[in-house]
Design a protein around this nucleic acid. Structure first.
Lengths: 191, 191
DNA sequence: AAATGCACTTGACCTAGATTATGAAATTAT
DNA sequence: ATAATTTCATAATCTAGGTCAAGTGCATTT
């Protein structure tokens, strides 16, 4: 059964016709690892709901340094929210880490969905609320905790996909250099 | 005229009856500077739309260190989103910085509003979307820029209220100690 | 099978920002 | 006004984490 519908059902109740509209306006797609779905400075015209595999979003700063913004596992959405919502060029890349099956929702179809199936408005509101909360927590964590503690929090949150993530990307996500991360890990093993 | 209705009108169009419901379900209130509207570990049962004055939210970590999470100027909302949405004890304090007029919306009335005036669902979705974007930008900024650059970004974003903010709170917001902030400011003046 | 290129490790050295301490200036309360 | 509290400035010392550089083990390409 469709994982997206199942996911929507956790928050709002759709009629079978509503569900039909959702299926009609979304499109399953598969991508190989290392595929780039969105490039920095491009407009993000679609968001992705992950069925299988792992994706990530990241930015490259003025000094050429990569910063991982998010990892997306199954049942998560990923997009450059700024660009997707404003339809202006964004800062993020979106890349497939592990061969992925996703459901694609274009910005256009998202708007159609809102007007044709008003209940989805609530579903997406709740989704965004949850990401906002997660984001604020991460911000506070970054201000409050040391790199070691942040790593600990990270492993708990992402333990299921941990073995698939190159550690330079974990380092980047928690906000330290790969060199420092490597040293930190070695130190932790000694305990 | 009511600033909240004006603000809503920027995103969705309400009928006069709808507007009546909004007015009925919200309540203007005034608070003196230094009033604490929410304490850490309490459940956040209301959110505040600022008409006049300045508020802030902050947390106190395990070591007793304060971290400013947000400042709210006129036309902004403030709440402990995690606690407000989950109705569980939160981590944030909310405090009045400058004598304030606010419009109070209780969680209960928020739910009523969603069901009685469905269009408000879109309004709040858009609001949350915008805070999510702002939050992600701040996260990236923190990972990417030095304290000096973050201060520069801060002054641009909050220039209108800058004179009212104690600099230890600015320091906390951008993520440095008051001592370091003081020295940084002195250094910047020399240029 | 060699060659190219990453991801990771380790070491030496460096720096942005933290910590601790002290005093002056400015608010706030009495 | 003046005492009390808080904010701000400055200086000395310390450290978490960064930078640069060199080397190792794996994949992927040819």
């Amino acid at each position: 059964m469709n994982l997206l519908l199942k996911n929507i059902a956790k928050h709002v109740t759709l009629t079978p016709e509503d569900e039909g509209r959702v299926l009609f306006l979304t499109e399953p797609q598969t991508f190989k690892a290392k595929t780039i779905l969105l490039k920095q400075a491009d407009v993000c015209t679609q968001s992705y709901f992950v069925i299988k595999g792992i994706l990530r979003s990241y930015t490259i700063d003025e000094n050429g340094v990569e910063h991982v913004v998010s990892f997306a596992c199954p049942e998560w959405w990923i997009a450059d929210m700024y660009s997707y919502l404003s339809q202006r060029p964004g800062q993020l890349f979106i890349e497939v880490i592990e061969d992925a099956e996703v459901i694609v929702l274009t910005k256009e179809n998202q708007e159609k969905l809102y007007s044709e199936v008003p209940k989805t408005e609530r579903f997406f509101r709740i989704l965004i609320e949850n990401s906002l909360i997660a984001n604020q927590k991460r911000l506070i964590n970054n201000l409050t905790f040391t790199a070691e503690a942040r790593y600990d929090i990270f492993t708990k949150k992402f333990h299921s996909i941990l073995p698939y993530l190159p550690q330079k990307q974990i380092a980047s996500y928690i906000g330290v250099t790969p060199e420092f991360f490597s040293r930190m890990k070695a130190k932790l093993l000694k305990k």
